[in-house]
Design a protein around this nucleic acid. Sequence first.
DNA 1: TATTGTTATACTCTATAACTATA
DNA 2: TATAGTTATAGAGTATAACAATA
Lengths: 154, 154
Amino acid sequence: MSYATAVPGKSRVSGDLVDSLGQTSFTVIALLSRIAAEHDMSLTQLRALAILRDREPAMAELAAFLGLERSSVSGLMDRAARRGLVRRTPGDDDARVTYVSLTAKGHRLAAEVTTEVADLLAPMTNRLSAAEQKRLTALLFALLDQSDGSQQPS
Amino acid sequence: MSYATAVPGKSRVSGDLVDSLGQTSFTVIALLSRIAAEHDMSLTQLRALAILRDREPAMAELAAFLGLERSSVSGLMDRAARRGLVRRTPGDDDARVTYVSLTAKGHRLAAEVTTEVADLLAPMTNRLSAAEQKRLTALLFALLDQSDGSQQPS
DNA sequence: TATTGTTATACTCTATAACTATA
DNA sequence: TATAGTTATAGAGTATAACAATA
């Protein structure tokens, strides 16, 4: 509330930025959901798969990554395990902990989905020149405060 | 699949762009979900609210906007109507049609949510200078093929 | 006592299929 | 017959609360 009214000169620009960010986000998320659905997965499962590509977290850590309750992730991993995509491994030092990791099948699916995402996004991204793509990437990483380009699960 | 391999020179850049788009989208959507949750709404209900701000569509049109089945939107509008946010109006010429519109309460909530979105996004957007914000906005609209800036529900 | 993970329960979201009313 | 909307039903996703096992 304060933002829109406190800085009138910037609010116009920011309003458009907010709109473009919102529209872009919904478009991208819809596309990811579509890919997920084509593989009989939810968007959350697709995210989990992406996260697990280069991590082997404890259940609680995975829940933190996903921003969900532990109990929700239990069910999520139940369904993923039932499909043979992930496995649970008991912790060695702390017997309370359960680590989650992708199976070979899970890794294959994750890799497949990654290329599909790039493919489906291509019609959009190709509307920009190579230079524009670079600028956009830099701006988005700056927005995310990750101008170093360090990878987080997408 | 073909994209990543067919244009090796661009795939590196595109991979980063895909990552930054994905991360940004998840971040924005998570933020929108949080705002929705604070008002006891789902992300979909928030979207519906935004759509209805400047439209009075038939149920089937709303379903098309949201990318959902008509039956899903029936339930969605049931719950929104129960909270007094929307009303249903029978069509005059075609008695099969039902139009949906925001109540005064719905309009108030939609306006409130809009300012909250801008507020919560501000810490992110303020990381960019005014000139950078402008460039990012232009690039995103170009990506969406809407360089005219015509408004769609965000 | 505190923490990890699971289970029980309840509600929302979504889709498919069947239905009613209207065209 | 075809279309608009609803209802019935079922499954996934999510949270809260309670629990067992471990620390």
